[in-house]
Nucleic acid binder design. Sequence first.
DNA 1: CGAAGGGTTGATCAATTTCAATCGCGGTGG
DNA 2: CCACCGCGATTGAAATTGATCAACCCTTCG
Lengths: 240, 240
Amino acid sequence: MSNQFVQKLSGLAELSPNDVAALEAATARPRRYAARQDLIREGDEPGPMFVVLEGWVCRYKILPTGTRQIVAFLMPGDACDLHIKLLAEMDHSIQTITAARVATISRSEIDALMDNHPNIARAMYIAQLVDEGVMRAWIVSIGRRTSPQRVAHLICELYLRAHNVGMTTGESFDLPISQIILADALGMTAVHINRVLKELRLAGAMAVNRGSVTISNPVRLVQIAGFDENYLHRRLRRLI
Amino acid sequence: MSNQFVQKLSGLAELSPNDVAALEAATARPRRYAARQDLIREGDEPGPMFVVLEGWVCRYKILPTGTRQIVAFLMPGDACDLHIKLLAEMDHSIQTITAARVATISRSEIDALMDNHPNIARAMYIAQLVDEGVMRAWIVSIGRRTSPQRVAHLICELYLRAHNVGMTTGESFDLPISQIILADALGMTAVHINRVLKELRLAGAMAVNRGSVTISNPVRLVQIAGFDENYLHRRLRRLI
DNA sequence: CGAAGGGTTGATCAATTTCAATCGCGGTGG
DNA sequence: CCACCGCGATTGAAATTGATCAACCCTTCG
């Protein structure tokens, strides 16, 4: 399958070869970014739609005190904000975590894609609904789960999302994310994340090494997390 | 202005008298619900779109341990999930907090509204983007703000949203929400919410009495919250 | 009148943050 | 080639926040 964007959307709606070709054309000229580059900042006027083709990206907000909260991770195949152009300004920033290849699709291109390819429109709407479900799950995690549960839940989510676009190998996947970034995503301190990761490692549930995660005991990890994949609305219900 | 739904959408796009009439017709036959009734539950098949016309409603999820996290408040004028029918099942539940009047609009009615009234479509898309911004702001609050900041921030948000649909009187507004519900929304315990409310009252920032909130010192409240209204994307930038 | 559900308060406990120090690794300039 | 630097990872100890446990009060409602 050509790229993760096509692969992801194919999982959400039936795409014809014609649809696939249109998606490939729209993402044919991605731009490369170094790590830690803002694609767009809070307060900026929204631009074209971003589609991540390679690397990891996040949405985040900075508080007056300077602390940061990451509100979403984007991995290859993930796109941003279909109708974002309707807003006058961005309410958050988007930044690369690793070096990345990101395609931009202009408003008119999107409109053309959606108008001429109903199945693409359908898939994009579903993707947006899933993204909202993911945000709700984050609120639940941060609000009500203990820190080990929270970390475990995020890893379960990322594993499944990566799996969905063919980016896992067995029970491992690349997670090129520092403990600092994990802390910013989970509303914790890096110190505490470190201790929780150790705890999960000692519990035999999962281990992080040099930018990749291995889920040593999927059943245990899911138990710890209290993970229910329903909010990812996947067509293919594989057990992990 | 006829109802809060029309009022809210009018603030997001120019609506013609014809558009307004169509919205009124679509919400003409609301259903009444008692307090604490689920409109729909996690796992259910999505139904029609809900539009709250009177009363308060929330989206929530229940954890395996039985604790609850509220992920959004819906007040009069707020609608749910434009394209939700594209999903096979709900990933969260929706429940009335108070007695409420809620209109339901079927998929086909929505499609007709959106197709025949581009400005309604535009307004609904903007409303959805704003709802996403609100969710991001919740993640930030729960993840990174202290409890007094968190409470203050939520009150600022709710005040502005209420103000937007004409539901404030001076610096007060109805907030028919128990401390338990506040706790479920902010990821805290009711006991702690109680102490924080006391602290905010003593600080002269705001006070809650019998289902209504008075913002005694807006400037102080905004300061405490570190509140920036940008994420609500309001057209009318009034200072509170 | 009694029961139930919120609200309020105090005392104690547990989870996390904060502060501080050390370690290790990759990259860089001398 | 190697010492040095900066960033992330790791660990310990102290400080703080918020949760938990346990009363008790007040109002509403049957």
